[in-house]
Simulated scan of single mutants.
Amino acid sequence: MIDPFVESLIRAIYDCVVDPSGWEEVLRRIVTKTNAVSASMQTTFDAKPSNIARWNVDPFYSKIYLEHFYTVNPFIPLRMNYMAEKVYSGDSLTTTASYRESSFFNEFAKPQEWEGFNGISLNGPGSADVLALMHNRNADFAQTGGEDLLSRLAPHVCRAYDLGGLLAKAHQTTDFLGQAIAAAGFGTVLLSENCRIIYANQVAEDMLRQQSGLVFIRGELLAEASPLTSQLQALVRACVDQKAATYPLGTILKLTRRKIDQPILVHVLPLREKTAAMLTNKVRPVAALFLIDPHQDLSARLQSFANAYALTSVEIAIMSEIIQSDSLTIIAAKLGMAASTLRTHLGRLMAKTGASNRLALLRRFFEMASLAMP
């Protein structure tokens, strides 16, 4: 049975997709639970760091970190090698003599009583994006359950971070979802607790008119396949009451469509009352659905994805097949290669893209594709 604190925190994490100001409260709760000193969530754009959120970090030190200490941060090279969702410890570095003698420790970390560092890698190899916890020598991070908590939160933090970034890049704002999703490159639907549609953007409306994978009946959103309708309804109910959930938050639905092999991918995210009130003064939505149709402009999207990650022609071919099939045996046969060879290429493909598994690889592809193409 899921711990009530963890359940509540996971829901708060997904709220941050549409209300990123909530990350500060998420950090506060993690710091309090683990007896840490401070926490920060950082991203990098054009080789320049910026804070997504921070908790109990002196603004003076935050400023000089961005201006100077980021460039001498000894943890950056380590983080650049981690896969997304990796929970790491800085113990191997903080106990060395070179670190204890460094300006980073003596002029930045030590004055803030930061003796230890733990965190979650947010974006895979080549990226230093991180959710970091800082604690002092008096706090036993493992004893407080900090490592276990970060491990349980890591996939949810990374997924919320990815989707929040998708909205931010596409629309230059995540403060008001109603503005952002109106012109999104993917379908977005806001649902009430009983799956009644409160809002749908143009892409989602087109999908509903075609009744391909999803149908709109008497104001209610349904999947064409009854079992998938039940799963969709269960996920929406989970947005209201996780204890009654049949499927965990973060589940990605694949909605099959008649005469089309590729399914619609559906992310179901919960909305809290504060966020719902920002979106509409009608019936309050409890869930946001993000719908991605992989059938549209696939070749161009594949090339854009390949360019972004410097994929080889073989890796592009494998990526194309992964989108169409979840069977490595079938993919290997279609490409005329041994299963072991396919796994080797797939491992390189995941390493380049920072995906920890095939599902994460697909998610990364579709999210990037929805930005790259209209």
Rank of each mutant, 00 (worst) to 15 (best):
T144I: 10
R152S: 07
Y161S: 01
Q112A: 02
F186S: 01
A139E: 13
A170P: 03
V189I: 14
F176M: 03
P155F: 07
I197D: 06
N123Q: 01
I198A: 06
G116Q: 03
D175R: 14
R196A: 14
W114G: 03
P111H: 12
T188P: 05
Q143K: 15
L191W: 10
G145A: 01
E113M: 11
W114Q: 02
L150G: 00
Y161N: 00
M134S: 12
A170V: 10
F176D: 05
D162Q: 14
Q202W: 06
L177F: 00
D148G: 10
Q112H: 01
S127I: 01
D175C: 09
F176Q: 09
H135Y: 14
G187Y: 03
E107K: 12
L122R: 08
L131W: 04
D175N: 14
Y199W: 00
A183E: 06
A200C: 11
A183T: 05
V203E: 10
G116S: 06
N194G: 15
K110C: 11
D162C: 13
K169S: 13
A168P: 02
A132Q: 00
A168Q: 13
I120W: 04
L163I: 04
P155C: 05
F108R: 06
I120K: 04
L131V: 00
G116L: 00
E107R: 10
N123L: 07
F117E: 01
Y199F: 09
D140R: 00
